[in-house]
Design a protein around this nucleic acid. Structure first.
Lengths: 202, 202
DNA sequence: AGGGTTATCGGCCAGCTGTATTATGTCAAC
DNA sequence: GTTGACATAATACAGCTGGCCGATAACCCT
């Protein structure tokens, strides 16, 4: 029944199957055949949508980034107009940590991707650029917050941005069950509480 | 010339070869044959020292933990008697981050190990226990520092311990070249500066 | 209605994987 | 000097890997 098919949609479907394989069975089981099985198709069919394993991985990773950005965007939208920068940072952090099913899938993809990126020039550049962009974003947000009087002027925007990004280190602790989600959230709130000044309008 | 051979020594030599493979070529190239080649022996010989691939990985990981602990211990020794808890935490953090060759090797091993541990019950328990132990250590250190007046009594020891452990998240930023080592160190010092009180005897 | 495109399937391949087995060489003890 | 344990090497093997190709079928357009 080969109707005309939406390739983009099919690829996303395959990418989600790939995420499930990574999440449920681990990177070592990330093979073309296994992904095809998870997606409910033959590996011949899968090759019709991805010419190579690398192309499949590449798409799945980009898609994971997109979906994470999307979740962050949705979280920000719920904060309404002119949200407090503290809440903005909190949304960004919590959506990047494996605190719920969607985030866990993309988080594991990201971890596996980074590990491979260290020995793949193509992947490396993209991972690096993505993170550098995030770093600039956070730093700019902090600068603005200082200007707006939400953060003490003495704080170093670069160092504070680095510290916030480093908090993605909670990922490992959460995944291994060393700490519970609410403990991670409490620690993040502690950190943000000390970063931001208590201003009257809050 | 099969003299009597120190098995432990041989295994450590193989483990270091395994680290080099992981560091230089990536986890995907972590195969019995590749490790044997890196160690300069036939894969038949390697099998004489490790009955299975899993046994080899297991040993290499334990050995990485040991060596990391050793480096931390050496760093602490250089601080002399009764070191300031701030310096103790700084040594622990800096030895866990990929800031020099030895640390980078064990750090990458650890990252690969965690990723696999999520789907291997044996590995999972050991990774979890190791981190839980580290968590307790840091938390106890903070409690003592509060008692000794180095940290404000209002601080939550658990949350502060979690934040410090989360700073291992610098690993990813460093490995990808998003930030430079001195930037990570500066951020860590910023954090420690705010955690500890300035006491007269310092 | 028919020709061209697209979709799907199944099997094939060379290469690599971890493991098991066998053969050969080398030492120490009796 | 023979025996037995140990060390090393080489090979065999079944299974899986990613990539490739041909067959078949379903659709679209003219």
């Amino acid at each position: 029944m080969p109707k005309q098919v939406d390739h983009r949609e099919r690829r996303e479907m395959i990418a989600r199957a790939l995420w499930r394989v990574v999440e449920q069975r681990g990177v070592t089981h990330l093979t073309v055949r296994e992904v095809a099985r998870e997606a409910g198709m033959s590996h011949g069919q899968l090759q019709h949508y991805f010419a190579s394993r690398e192309a499949m991985l590449s798409f799945a990773m980009d898609f994971a980034s997109e979906q994470t950005s999307l979740r962050v965007g949705q979280g920000l939208q719920q904060l309404g107009d002119r949200p407090h920068p503290r809440d903005v940072l909190r949304v960004m952090l919590t959506e990047m940590l494996p605190l719920h099913a969607d985030a866990r899938a993309t988080s594991r993809m990201s971890a596996a991707f980074v590990l491979e990126a260290l020995h793949n020039e193509n992947f490396h550049a993209r991972a690096r650029d993505g993170m550098t962009q995030g770093r600039s974003l956070v730093e700019q947000l902090i600068r603005q917050a200082i200007t707006d009087g939400h953060i003490a002027p003495g704080r170093d925007p670069a160092a504070e941005a680095h510290l916030l990004l480093a908090l993605t280190g909670f990922t490992t602790l959460l995944e291994l069950g060393v700490i519970e989600p609410q403990e991670a959230l409490a620690a993040i709130d502690h950190h943000l509480d000390r970063l931001f000044l208590r201003t009257p309008e809050d």
